[in-house]
Amino acid sequence: MQLSAQEVKAALPWQDLVEALRDIFTRKVTSPVRHHHVLNVPQEKDAMLLLMPAWLEGEYCGVKQVFVFPSNNDKGLPGLTSNYLLSSGKTGANLAQLEGNELTSRRTAAASALASSYLSRQDASRLLMVGSGRMARNLIAAHRSVRSITHVSVYNRNLAGAEKLVEDLIEAGITAKVCRPDELAQEAANADIISCATMSKEPIIKGDWLNPGCHLDLVGGFTPEMQEADNAALKKAKVFVDTRAGALSEAGDIIIPLKAGVIQKEDIQAEFTELCSNAHKGRNAYPDAEKIITVFKSVGDSREDLAAAILAYQSLSK
Rank of each mutant, 00 (worst) to 15 (best):
P70G: 11
F272T: 06
Y155V: 04
R244I: 14
R303T: 01
K235T: 08
M129K: 06
G261H: 13
M1W: 05
L103V: 08
D182G: 01
Q2S: 03
L184A: 07
Q314M: 06
S125Q: 15
Y313N: 00
R180C: 09
L56A: 05
T26I: 01
S87N: 13
N190K: 14
G161V: 00
D253N: 14
R157K: 13
L114D: 05
F222I: 01
G161H: 14
L119C: 13
G79Y: 02
V66L: 13
M1A: 09
F25E: 04
E7V: 01
I263S: 09
S31F: 09
V68I: 15
M199Q: 13
L127D: 06
S31M: 10
S31W: 06
S117N: 12
Q6I: 08
G221P: 09
M129R: 09
L98I: 11
M226L: 09
E7C: 03
A309N: 00
R27L: 13
V154T: 07
A279M: 11
L80M: 13
K75L: 15
A279L: 14
A54K: 03
T150C: 13
P212G: 11
A111I: 04
N284F: 10
A47T: 05
P70L: 12
I293L: 13
P42T: 14
M226F: 09
L12Q: 09
L306Q: 04
N83P: 00
S4T: 15
M129D: 03
E290N: 14
G161R: 12
C276F: 05
R244S: 09
I194C: 10
G213T: 12
Q6Y: 10
R121W: 09
D46C: 05
L139H: 04
I263R: 12
A20R: 05
D242F: 06
V8A: 09
L49W: 11
L49K: 12
E304F: 04
E59W: 01
D230Y: 03
L258Y: 06
D217E: 12
A279C: 06
N156E: 03
H143Q: 14
I140D: 00
G246P: 04
N211H: 14
P78Y: 09
L21K: 06
T26S: 12
A237R: 10
T198I: 06
I194S: 03
V146K: 07
V299F: 07
L56C: 05
S105Y: 00
Y313R: 00
S249L: 10
Y84V: 04
V219P: 02
V219D: 02
I193L: 11
G246T: 07
R34S: 07
D16W: 04
A47H: 05
E59I: 00
D16C: 03
A309I: 00
R157E: 07
E187V: 11
G300Y: 06
A5M: 02
G261T: 12
E99Q: 15
V241W: 03
N40W: 10
H37Q: 14
A47Q: 04
L248N: 12
G62M: 01
G100E: 06
L234K: 05
V262W: 06
V295I: 15
T198M: 04
